[in-house]
Nucleic acid binder design. Structure first.
Lengths: 108, 108
DNA sequence: ATCGTATATCGTCGTTTTACGATAAATGTG
DNA sequence: CACATTTATCGTAAAACGACGATATACGAT
């Protein structure tokens, strides 16, 4: 039927959107999402699409350095992307990874 | 339309199946799922419906006490239920909680 | 060139996680 | 009753996490 039924997630040629994460990769994403502050960051990024770090600092009751660390975790997991814009960094969701997480979660 | 649009997750009267988890609850479930061994336990339980602890010990390359700890984490998160049957304990998924997790993940 | 702003990184501290072996508790079996 | 089986719990050690303040870095503005 669809590509997801033909290729599995471990196939190197599988760059399609239907890809499903294996247990380790899925656990890695879950771990990155396993903190309330990081969930709120994801929710906020979903709502406003893109924003700078400072905006998140104002929303969360955490120090700037702590927020920066949480963003680092999310970035390492591939859930968010950050691009430097002059003195600030603009963050946005990586919808591709997020969708892959959702599909995998749905398949459990 | 459906109940999910009328009641939100924080409503005390919201015991319906469409309930969505708040950020903290969702993060808690994600944290519990944030380890490859625990994902494999969930997958195995989904495949065979119910099994005793010893069966999981044979599947995973971990000591019995470690597996028992992982099961404890999953149970604390509400993802699995365990009932004592004589000298052994039989585990199975809590589909309700799992579905709630899935729906919340899908709504992110 | 200096200043102010925004962010990342460093160092630190206390807590939590993960893993294991050893042991206790519960329950069938001989 | 003694014994084997199954699982949970305890104790422990190493690693990772989460939070913070202090500091470094990068860049625009004056």
């Amino acid at each position: 039927m669809c590509a997801a039924l033909i290729f599995n997630a471990k196939s190197p040629m599988n760059q399609n959107a239907e890809a499903i994460l294996d247990a380790t990769a899925f656990a890695g994403i879950c771990k990155a999402l396993g903190h309330p502050a990081r969930i709120r960051i994801i929710e906020h990024l979903k709502a406003i699409d893109r924003c700078i770090c400072g905006e998140i600092v104002q929303i969360l009751p955490l120090a700037q350095s702590t927020v920066s660390q949480h963003l680092k975790v999310l970035k390492a997991a591939g859930l968010v992307k950050g691009e430097v814009e002059g003195p600030r960094t603009c963050y946005c969701l990586d919808r591709e990874i997020l969708d892959r997480f959702k599909r995998t979660a749905g398949s459990i």
